[in-house]
């Protein structure tokens, strides 16, 4: 969705909503099932490294997470300060200026954006940081509550 203040009549996808997320993985994590869609295999690998266990089974009850990877012109991610913001219905994780993840407490669904660079080493380090921020912010919630606990 574009913001009304900043779009032309033509459809510009200013918010980058329509990026195709063709890479999919199903994971168990802290007792929850997560169906993760992304446009970068690196994101799926980073999820495994962060403690998400790959699952082969199909479960319609899985949380649907979508993470869009965006290329950065430089490898330095710049400010990578992790911050967590919460309201009664959502948890929002911010990693620097351009990386974020949003989580719906009621449905368990989530979405976010992460940066990948030209060099795999930098990309992997950044993805590790990103998933660590997610695990720190959401792990306790998912672990302690399972699905019922999320229905607050």
């Amino acid at each position: 969705m574009n913001t009304s203040n900043d779009r032309d009549a033509s459809s510009t996808d200013l918010m980058h909503r329509r990026v195709r997320l063709a890479e999919c993985g199903r994971f168990s994590w802290s007792g929850a099932l997560v169906a993760l869609s992304t446009n970068s295999a690196s994101v799926l690998r980073a999820a495994e490294h962060a403690g998400f266990t790959k699952q082969e089974s199909v479960d319609d009850q899985a949380y649907r997470w979508e993470i869009t990877a965006e290329s950065s012109v430089d490898d330095a991610a710049g400010d990578c300060t992790c911050q967590v913001f919460r309201d009664a219905r959502s948890i929002y994780v911010s990693v620097g200026h351009t990386q974020w993840f949003a989580f719906d407490r009621a449905t368990g669904d989530g979405a976010g954006f992460v940066t990948i660079g030209k060099h795999p080493t930098h990309t992997d380090a950044n993805l590790t940081l990103y998933f660590r921020a997610l695990v720190d912010a959401l792990g306790t919630l998912v672990d302690s509550g399972q699905r019922e606990g999320l229905m607050t």
Partner: peptide, 22 residues
């Protein structure tokens, strides 16, 4: 800077603010 996916969106107008949408 604006991004969105699924039910969520994020907007930033300066380097120090953050607006999250569900």
């Amino acid at each position: 800077w604006f991004r969105g996916r699924g039910y969520f969106a994020f907007a930033r107008f300066t380097r120090s603010d953050r607006f999250w949408f569900n």
